[in-house]
Design a protein around this nucleic acid. Structure first.
Lengths: 339, 339
DNA sequence: ATGAAAGCGCTAACAA
DNA sequence: TTGTTAGCGCTTTCAT
């Protein structure tokens, strides 16, 4: 087990100072062509590469971005994580993952841990943060951006889709399809996405003088969504909703399965189903779900751009709440009468 | 934007040496109750936390595990990443993600980058490594473990399922169900999982004096799986396979959709379909796929145990190839005649 | 353009 | 148990 090669060793062998070696590996530093060549040659021979941690310590820039994420079982997030990681990697950053799940203690502890790693920035996905910890990051000079979550705090940047308009658009669809008993299955009530989608949906129904016929809660969890679907739909036909907006696709698939395979109902003929996210399985023909697309690639791009600009120009920066439009995707779980 | 609080500041305010502060935050170091209390109090007041990077530099242990992963669109991997991250977090480690995708340059470069971060260990998922880079890690004293990939190299640890037996079991199922024209849709030919599954499947068929009736390649990609399904099944009925083993679930779903919705065939009556992995959608009732389970939780547990034992007892360690049994999960995409 | 020297914040001997 | 001291490997003034 050979030791790690340091800049000192390269310097010695190349007959230059250690600082010279450092400069060769620092973009934009002033070194002569000659020295650079010599140093690179020796470095290659010895297998030298600069130690990122040492560099981080002295420069104060780790080029590490902390990512807090809770549930990867909603396929919206793995997809986002992959894109995020790729985009950051392209720009010379890397992602240090922190799961904020049940077992891992609460989110504030996790955030503290992240700060210990002297990260240059933090992306918080699918999680709400206390304002204390937001302040803590601010005072540590570490920019934070919320991904797919909104917070009333104007001091914190966020990237979301227009959940409200999306919900409204879905209401329009169900009303246009002449449904009478329209249900809603909610996500986790603590999430801004849940709240905004429901509000948009209800406002959309109101605009047509309709209201929600029945409501259940699925908490964005597939098992709970199934239970809720059974409660709502395993009833006498006249009490049964004829359409339902499920707060995300992940739950909508489970609801569809209950409707079709447990209750023997037809989607969309007996019950129309709409979801939110447009995760890949929504386009799979077995589901073919009418939904609202969260444009994950654009969301990620905005997240990266915003965060890195904040990191790289801390002075000129001002927190921004970005809300992306979220197109309606009409597929086969609605009747689409007038199309 | 307040400065970061250092141990020196805490030491001054608490009236102790800087080293004392360090010891208070080092589990197992010898400090008196009194000093510890005093230091903790001041630390809390000042909001001090040890800098992980500085600690890593001097101790040589970063408590960072590099994770190389390629495609998160096969849901087997997000699931594994989540579990892995959780398990490592429980044991005080964190995951630094490196995507080894098309855009990110080749895998060896990525590995070099990882080493720059002075990681304590590396998990390589779904990717094959050159033996050069394996050596590089070894000489850097960084343990590597392959997750869900096998390599002939006996010097490198790996955790896999028993893909061969799984493939064999699937052959048994299809033969028992009295299929005559049994097809195979392969994954990426460079993957050990693909090779082992196919070999097991073919050997299983041979044991019953059968052979593969038709073969296509899907490369583990959903779009290619669809194309391949069309080529194999959009033919005259007498030339059409009546059963197919698709090398993973991810592709199997696409194949099922083509069969049912594009070609109007019934699964399993016209064509039986079996997959591999048992990712969550395999249990969704719309697919209800007969498959072989890769026990992701166990795989992850073994991966973590092996890697950390190698990190924590470098001397006593010897590389191990772990192969977990992979149970057959019979569901509704096979006819199950004799059950 | 280059070298010498001063640290980044911490842990790990070593003394006391 | 505690303080002193010496670095970990690097970037960054400051001279030259």
């Amino acid at each position: 087990m050979a030791e790690r090669v340091t800049s000192v060793q390269v310097a010695q062998k190349a007959g230059v100072s250690q600082a010279a070696v450092s400069r060769v590996f620092t973009p934009g530093a002033s070194v002569s062509e000659k020295t650079a060549l010599k140093v690179r040659k020796v470095a290659k021979e010895l297998g030298y590469r600069p130690n990122s941690l040492a560099r981080a310590m002295v420069s104060g820039k780790s080029r590490i971005i902390g990512l807090v994420v809770a549930y990867l079982d909603n396929y919206f997030y793995p997809d986002a994580v992959e894109r995020l990681s790729n985009k950051l990697q392209e720009r010379g950053y890397h992602v240090l993952v922190f799961m904020a799940s049940q077992t891992a203690g609460n989110i504030d502890d996790v955030m503290e841990e992240i700060l210990d790693y002297q990260v240059d920035g933090i992306v918080v996905a699918s999680v709400a943060m206390s304002s204390e910890i937001t302040k803590r990051c601010q005072s540590a000079g570490v920019p934070v951006i919320l991904f797919n979550r909104d917070q009333d705090d104007i001091a914190i940047s966020s990237v979301t889709s227009d959940n409200y308009s999306g919900g409204r658009a879905l209401a329009d669809v169900l009303v246009a399809d002449e449904h009478e008993k329209i249900a809603y299955i909610a996500g986790w009530e603590g999430a801004s996405t849940q709240r905004d989608r429901e509000l948009g949906f209800r406002d959309g129904l109101s605009a047509h003088n309709r209201t929600v016929f029945a409501r259940g809660v699925g908490n964005f969890r597939s098992d709970q969504a199934k239970d809720t679907a059974r409660v709502l739909f395993d009833v006498a036909p006249n009490k049964r909703p004829d359409a339902v907006f499920v707060a995300n696709d992940h739950m909508a698939f489970m609801v569809m399965d209950v409707l079709r395979f447990e209750l023997g109902l037809s989607v969309p003929n007996d019950v129309a189903v709409v979801g939110f996210d447009d995760v890949p399985p929504a386009a799979w023909l077995s589901y073919n779900l009418t939904t609202v697309r969260q444009r994950a690639n654009v969301m990620v791009q905005k997240t990266v751009d915003t965060l890195l600009s904040q990191i790289e120009n801390p002075s000129t920066f001002c927190p921004t709440q970005i809300k992306l439009d979220s197109p309606l995707i009409i597929r086969g779980t609605t009747r689409n009468l007038n199309r």
